[in-house]
């Protein structure tokens, strides 16, 4: 049984085509800028792989053009067992899945198997150094890199993503750091996402302290500049 936070039946951004997103609860990290703090703890809504499959299958008519299911969270790989059980059922219907992960779940055999079955992995590279990673997320970059390297070795399509937070990692120096950290990984794309404040109300609803309550949303124009900087540096490196 897996504890489910929620579903989003129309995902168009996390993976190819139209996606049915399953948000699991539970996360080993405590990111300062988390926009889904309500997924940290169990919701009490438990579902078996079969029940999840029945739910997902209802969206099959929308899975043309590479669409499918996206496992997100929380940290989906904490539920690797459920994903592995689902895998066979999904395959029987020709439905592929994508993992939207922080890569911070220990790389056990179960986790490896869940990655093996994925069409694509969206890996969140939160911070470029062990020190910063520990400071802002409470987790370890080492585990993330192991996950990323595993995807690279196995030839799984990998997309890196980083949330850019004003005042924390919105500088070119930081971008250089990310590029260095990412260099051993074999990825298709590196996408920067802007920090937003639309998850703030969740902190209020949960009665939790919001460590970034005074941080403004990321300016889309500056985000675009950083993305261009990142993309051009990466393609420059690839050409060398």
């Amino acid at each position: 049984m897996a504890d489910i936070h929620s579903f989003e039946s129309l995902g168009a951004l996390d993976g190819q085509g139209l996606r049915f997103c399953v948000f699991f609860t539970g996360c080993p990290l405590r990111c300062a800028y988390c926009h889904n703090p309500d997924t940290w703890h169990k919701s009490g809504r438990e579902m078996s792989p079969r029940e999840l499959f029945d739910k997902i299958r209802r969206s099959k008519p929308y899975f043309k053009n590479g669409g499918g299911v996206t496992f997100s969270g929380g940290e989906p790989l904490l539920n690797a067992e459920t994903i592995n059980e689902l895998r066979g059922m999904l395959e029987s219907e020709g439905i592929g899945y994508c993992l939207d992960t922080s890569g911070s779940a220990p790389l056990t055999d179960e986790v490896k198997a869940a990655i093996d079955g994925a069409d694509m992995v969206l890996l969140d590279l939160k911070f470029p150094t062990e020190e910063l990673y520990k400071k802002y997320t409470g987790g370890s970059l080492e585990t993330v890199m192991q996950t990323g390297k595993y995807c690279s070795e196995k030839g799984i399509r990998l997309i890196l993503r980083t949330v850019i937070v004003p005042g924390i990692n919105n500088s070119r120096d930081m971008i250089d750091g990310y590029i260095r950290t990412a260099s051993p990984l074999c990825f298709e794309e590196y996408e920067l996402l802007g920090f937003h404040t639309m998850g703030f109300f969740k902190y209020e609803n949960l009665g939790m302290a919001n460590p970034l309550k005074d941080t403004p949303p990321m300016d889309p124009k500056k985000l675009r500049e950083l993305q261009e900087y990142l993309s051009s540096k990466i393609s420059g490196e690839k050409q060398q």
């Binding site: 989003e8 129309l10 995902g11 168009a12 951004l13 996390d14 997103c21 926009h35 889904n36 997100s72 939207d100 993503r161 949330v163 996402l193 802007g194 937003h196 404040t197 639309m198 998850g199 703030f200 109300f201 949303p217 889309p220």
Partner: peptide, 25 residues
């Protein structure tokens, strides 16, 4: 539905000030 970097909300569920923010953005 509005969706911003891996996070989806129903627009009508947002408080007024959040809606204004989305509109501005």
């Amino acid at each position: 539905t509005i969706r911003v970097s891996g996070y989806a909300v129903n627009f009508n569920k947002l408080t007024r000030d959040k809606q204004e923010e989305v509109v501005a953005r």
